[in-house]
């Protein structure tokens, strides 16, 4: 579903190497958690997957499409929610969702069903007619989440999606992630909340200073020591 090979990216003309020779394979139907300390290169990697940043080296295949050679097809397979979703302040929530549905060419019957479903689920029905600039931080995040899911993307990518959500919303989000995978789609998200990663993810990757230092199921990461928590593993691996 997502195959990253030898991906590198540096900022400021090589002064800061943010991602360094990263290779990764995420399978269909999988929830993949992307962990790493602050500044490790998670956001940079995600932005390259969705096409916001251009890699210096390496390739990214999404749903069979190379996102450099065939960006439009790759983008059609992706639903993306950034860490701080700044959406069009001067549209209403409804107009934004309808805009996204138009952009991803979601048929009318389907969009009605899905928009109503998400508005109801995230408790946004009452606010849907108001301008997004009147929304709270969490409401903005939820409208962006809904906007990313309208076309039922094969690959759903989120950057620290739980930050700023209330307990109920983040519970709903986790449910949504499970459901999305059960439909055969893939979820890829970065997080700092290790308990979420532990309980939710089929596989976990840990990135440190731009390099992938560990990847696998929780059991594989434990290397047989059943008592190890993810927290301990994380701290040990990212020690130096």
């Amino acid at each position: 579903m997502l195959r990253i090979s030898n991906l590198s990216k540096s900022y400021n003309r090589g002064a800061v190497k943010a991602v360094d020779g990263l290779s990764l394979h995420v399978k269909p139907g999988e929830i993949f958690g992307f962990l790493g300390p602050n500044g490790a290169g998670k956001t940079t990697t995600i932005k390259m997957i969705v096409g916001l940043l251009n890699p210096d080296e390496g390739s990214i295949i999404v749903n069979g499409y190379d996102n450099q050679k065939n960006p439009i097809e790759a983008k059609k397979s992706i639903g993306y929610v950034p860490d701080n979703p700044v959406v069009y302040d001067n549209l209403t929530g409804m107009e934004y969702l309808n805009f996204m549905a138009d952009i991803y060419q979601v048929p009318v019957t389907l969009r009605k069903e899905r928009i109503n479903y998400f508005l109801e689920m995230f408790d946004l029905t009452d606010a849907a007619g108001d301008l997004i600039k009147s929304y709270s931080h969490g409401m903005k995040q939820k409208i962006a989440l809904a906007g990313a899911l309208l076309h039922n993307p094969a690959l759903w990518i989120m950057d620290e999606p739980m930050v700023g959500l209330d307990p109920k919303s983040s519970h709903l989000l986790k449910e949504l992630m499970r459901q999305h995978c059960q439909k055969g789609n893939t979820v890829f998200f970065s997080t700092h909340i290790l308990e979420v990663a532990e309980r939710l993810c089929d596989r976990i990757g840990i990135i440190h200073r731009g390099k992938l230092i560990a990847v696998g199921t929780l059991d594989e990461l434990r290397r047989g020591e059943q008592s190890e928590t993810l927290e301990n593993i994380f701290l040990e691996l990212t020690e130096q």
Partner: peptide, 14 residues
Amino acid sequence: KLSAQSINAQLEKA
């Protein structure tokens, strides 16, 4: 507040 009808009305056109 948008009623269910007006929501659907807005979504009628692709």
